[in-house]
């Protein structure tokens, strides 16, 4: 918000027009607050909490961009424990 203050202003303008000052935002406002929902997506995209995700293990021989899909398992590698 401090790095991109213009996005804060736009979000607050949306909140002011949809929610106003007489009540707090609720989930019933969800459909009417697209910019806030865009902020959720963008915050997760811009600085992901876990930039490498969880390791996956291939459970059978496979090809990437070949003629078969990736079959992946959530079984964690031993070094995680």
């Amino acid at each position: 918000m401090v790095a991109y203050p213009e996005t804060q202003k736009r979000a607050q303008a949306e909140l002011d027009s949809i929610v106003g000052r007489d009540r707090v935002p609720t989930f019933s406002d969800f459909e009417h607050l697209p910019y806030i929902r865009g902020m959720v997506k963008e915050a997760l995209r811009w600085h992901p909490i876990d930039p490498v995700g969880l390791p996956h293990r291939v459970i059978q021989d496979d090809w990437y961009k070949g003629n078969a899909c990736l079959h992946i398992s959530l079984k964690p590698p031993a070094y995680l424990w």
Binding site: V52, V58, D62, K65, G66
Partner: peptide, 24 residues
């Protein structure tokens, strides 16, 4: 990185880690 331009054989048991940062 696994190149997106060509096929890549991935043997059974391979640990695959996605570079979420790069994708994002």
């Amino acid at each position: 990185l696994i190149s997106g331009k060509q096929g890549q054989f991935i043997p059974k048991g391979t640990i695959v880690i996605a570079n979420v940062w790069h994708l994002n």
